[in-house]
Write a protein that binds this DNA or RNA. Sequence first.
DNA 1: TTGAAAGCGTTACCAA
DNA 2: TTGGTAACGCTTTCAA
Lengths: 339, 339
Amino acid sequence: MNKGLTIKDIAKAAGVSETTISRYLNKKYEYMSEKTRRKIEEVVLTLDYRPSNVARSLKSQKSKLIGAVIADIGNQFASDIIKGLSDTCEALGYTLMIAISDESTENEQIQIEKFLDNQVEGLIINTTGFNQDYLTQLREGSVPVVLLDRGVPESQIDVVTNDNYGIGLKAMKYLIDSGFKSIGFFVNEVTNTVRSERLRAFKNGLAGQTEVLGDVYVVDPDNHENLIESMMSFKKLPEPRAIFSANGLTALGLLEAMKEEQLQIIEDFGLLTFDESTWARVVSPSITTIDQSSYGLGVEACRLLVHKVEGTAEKQSLSTSGSQLPSRLIIRESTSYLN
Amino acid sequence: MNKGLTIKDIAKAAGVSETTISRYLNKKYEYMSEKTRRKIEEVVLTLDYRPSNVARSLKSQKSKLIGAVIADIGNQFASDIIKGLSDTCEALGYTLMIAISDESTENEQIQIEKFLDNQVEGLIINTTGFNQDYLTQLREGSVPVVLLDRGVPESQIDVVTNDNYGIGLKAMKYLIDSGFKSIGFFVNEVTNTVRSERLRAFKNGLAGQTEVLGDVYVVDPDNHENLIESMMSFKKLPEPRAIFSANGLTALGLLEAMKEEQLQIIEDFGLLTFDESTWARVVSPSITTIDQSSYGLGVEACRLLVHKVEGTAEKQSLSTSGSQLPSRLIIRESTSYLN
DNA sequence: TTGAAAGCGTTACCAA
DNA sequence: TTGGTAACGCTTTCAA
């Protein structure tokens, strides 16, 4: 078990030089006799030798390490992303290191620097959204960076994200076509591009509508009083009303608050929320949701990063690439006030 | 930004030797003039120099790295654990590396070895449960190991876990005192100590009861047919009946299946489940749950591990330590069939 | 097809 | 109080 064995021990045991062992470890069999290879193979296996990645990294400046900093790990969405990252790193031969910034800018920087200290070859960042300057500067630094889910406005950093605007627009159209006369957009403070894109979809989806009223309610999903207050305010708009929730956590808070206040979904408000989840299917009435890629986001981000890490020239290119994945509207009971 | 600066550059810039810089970096100010210290400090700050942890690790064999392998990240419980680990590592001056085994033994081993290759000083493992031999052998290896949540039977490895047995017994007593005449224990395949402890609580809670019947249903939470079949089988036992679910995922699957089959909580079955979550409060009727430490589990595991890493002598001691955290029964509507 | 030796960026011993 | 230098475990020329 990595018991202090070094390349020297293996060389001695196999009766060859350290150089040859190194060649074997790096699969440079081209100029190695079959016999030597076999011999080394046997020794490595029986002694259960594993080369030190630390020494390797130091010498070759290549660690095969990728660092990912995740802002908030407390939802299914993040978990699936991480699985995507994990699986893809594994498949591509890299080791993934994950750190949680817990939505703190300071933490995000600390974690990034620790990763850099450990010679990661690339960085995947699900940014808190407040780290614009630091991240932009980072991009000019030594290792490739890919942003995950949340972008950084006006920066050139690659970002892999969902099509929040497009699906948001589609959801708006659906609500309007369903006959809702008021739509309330419930969102926490708009601190990142995901939220701002969703908000933009709400506003543009409303633009030009004369029959439909809309309002934005900036809420704190953990603060019930705040949630209730906003709902009561929204309740003054004409019926039928639909709440458009910018994320699952807010929807959950809303549901809890409604339960307290004896407010009914459908009767009082229709509900449509970003973030698909099991509980959306289980509650009554079931909740109409927007299902976005999460696992796929992780996969794509990882692929793109590795591409940049391994690409020689284009690594330094200034063109923003990145990609947008498609999303899906899942219609359930919570928005069917008719019939 | 770590732009290839080395200790040599700093030494040159500060007009002192590399040795002195190293002393500064390791806060060995004892034998250093105030003046030198200030000078170095200035240079380090203005040049934004950060020492390479890779070189440090190689030389000193101390990486300040802790590796955590998590079996399943797809639930709030795991997320909270990770937060606990993350915060505590940070506080104690260690860098946390997380990997996901996704409930695969093979993956678990791969991730552990990768961590070892990178010189982690200690390992926190939330084991898949099938890795008994490997883990036991690992314990005899070079780095300290702490098991998280799930233990390994008949091994001496330290484990930080919840008191699954005690709280399970309490839940059983509560159900029986509430007047339920049949209790069905719904659990996925019993592959780890957490599940086996919960099962043991169910069985012992039933022991000696003459009025109350019980049965164990081993189910696959993702397979609705399977779930429904088990519920139908349980439905043959005398009323009132309570389902005791061994985890949140199973409860969610059960809820979904019940919705499909038009089965009612309370009318058809009472429901009590391990794992507290927001949706348990939000659904109607709300669900009685067992709330266990998760964040605290992460904190404790981390503390214990660091203690072992830094402890000199006792590190090799054979005594199993570890700890058990208390749990809490949260009574809600789903078990109140009376009144 | 193989090996000797220099060097990656630190730390730590010994000397000054 | 400070500095020279060997060494950590590996990779990579260069030479054989």
